[in-house]
Nucleic acid binder design. Structure first.
Ligand code: NAD
Ligand code: NAD
Lengths: 246, 246
DNA sequence: CGCGATTTGTGCACGCCTTCACAAGCGCCT
DNA sequence: AGGCGCTTGTGAAGGCGTGCACAAATCGCG
């Protein structure tokens, strides 16, 4: 009710707590901090300094402090951050305490691997439904979950309260599947099919394209090769030489 | 004008052509332009305007023009860009004309899917070797390629000239595998295991973490939910397609 | 009780990236 | 041949993110 922009503590038992608008870059790093924190917690650490956590997450310590400062003051000067408390905070901000329901569309080569992936459940998500358009796939059970026909998506999504959908179909079907998901009320999509999806502005799309990742790496290979080729004149590329630098 | 070494065509028979240092953000988008261009080429388009290509790639047209301008002037004012020429240009810059050899380590749930993925070959990469530490997996054939023991990685990488490695092992093994790859002369790594890899500065690492992607989506779900819970006001303005590549 | 060691939180400056707006260039039509 | 419409390429401005450097805050200890 009294949600002023000055609300401060998010753990507030006030129904709808103040929601800080974090920079997008910060949001993208929070999951990495969270993973590092869980790892620390398992090793028994109770507190951690910004320096230590930054190292575990692979970032600059100043950046980490600034990121964490955006979600409130949860550190103690001279001591560090309380690991358990920080985990709760980040999980709250990311909305992971909701144990969100996720559905997966396209149980092919990749979808099969995703459906059996334990890393989802351990990080705050429940895969509650699998869909495919191929009648031969429907009924197949993966990890105790039966593949359903995509025509049932609308109904199942409503029943299970699914807000996040994962697309693992061929590129040609991705837009159609996205349309089905959106029509079913899904407002977040993770897309593995190469290509651009068109969705309403209230729907968030993130894409994962392995070929793009490899092509970026390839660029740097190309760049590195052209650099090493400059001084010597060796036409590299193909023969592999040992690591230079430290 | 301000640049001194510029204007060199890629097909230059000069051995080592000038290599423009593109902004990292531009590099990350080139693969998306390339995919869109291939799609256009298949539909028979000979030229495309910055507006049209930008729409196909899901970006702003000014951004696209600036990106392309970094690799030279390959457009024609009043007409647009020559599709075939631009494809060649981008593929050259990304080093895709080399048809790079890639190896995959960890033929488990995910690795199996990756090994059978046709999207690598069609986008400029050859998966030439599969490795695993499990004796039961060694010898298994996937897509005509036999799984080899990771102890052979060093030898095979040298034979095949492998510069790019993909890690699909459990997180606990990822660092050890990275060390093996680096020792074998691999200078680019795509890592699917959650966690931070430590590698020499001349080695590039890109990571793909599905849980992170979902958690970012979860944050936006949380944000959207808290907005609709507030008294009226602004409905989410939301970004369209955002792709934050690492 | 006060002091020094330690670590957080942040003001600030810098550089990168995005976006706008428009002059320059090109082809086509008259 | 000349003008007109279209599109590229780019200067400039603004915004965002990063990293430095330091004051403020806290704890432990004498
Ligand atoms: N396999 C990989 O390692 C890999 C890696 C990166 C990206 N991808 C991408 O992921 C997607 C899936 O790849 P894959 O190898 O699993 O392909 P696949 O052909 O093995 O599986 C696709 C599945 O989607 C189903 N499908 C097709 N149209 C559908 C529709 N309209 N509705 C519901 N289901 C439908 C098919 O029945 C099939 O089961 C592709 O876009 C591919 O480019 C795959
Ligand atoms: N399965 C998925 O959909 C999925 C999704 C996202 C991320 N991941 C990540 O990808 C990785 C692999 O996942 P998975 O489900 O395929 O696991 P998995 O257990 O099915 O497969 C792992 C494979 O790696 C092999 N391996 C283990 N140690 C090795 C070593 N030192 N050298 C070589 N090979 C070794 C194992 O023998 C096994 O075959 C994990 O880190 C996981 O977190 C998986």
């Amino acid at each position: 009710m009294s949600q002023q922009r000055q609300g401060s503590t998010p753990g507030e038992a006030d129904g709808v707590p103040a929601f800080p608008d974090l920079p997008e870059a910060t949001i993208a790093r929070l999951p990495e901090y969270l993973r590092a924190l869980h790892h620390l917690a398992e090793t028994g650490a109770e507190t951690v300094s910004s320096e230590g956590l930054a190292a575990a997450a692979g970032v600059n310590s100043a950046k980490l402090r600034k990121d964490l400062s955006h979600l409130g003051s949860y550190g103690t000067r001279g001591v560090g951050y309380d690991v358990a408390l920080l985990i709760d905070q980040i999980e709250y901000i990311l909305g992971l305490d909701k144990n969100r329901a996720v559905c997966l569309v396209g149980v092919g080569n990749l979808g099969h691997a995703l459906a059996g992936y334990a890393g989802f459940a351990s990080r705050g998500f429940r895969v509650v439904a699998l869909f495919d358009a191929d009648p031969k796939k429907v009924g197949e059970r993966i990890n105790g979950l039966a593949v359903q026909h995509i025509d049932d998506l609308d109904r199942v999504a409503a029943e299970e309260g699914i807000a996040i959908g994962v697309i693992a179909t061929p590129p040609g079907s991705a837009q159609a599947v996205a349309d089905v998901l959106v029509a079913a009320g899904v407002t977040s999509i993770l897309n593995f099919a190469p290509g651009v999806l068109s969705v309403p502005p209230n729907v968030d799309v993130r894409k994962v394209d392995l070929a793009i990742e490899l092509q970026i790496l390839s660029f740097h290979e190309h760049r590195k090769a052209s650099l090493t080729a400059l001084p010597g004149g060796r036409s590299a590329e193909g023969g592999n030489q040992e690591a230079v630098g430290s």
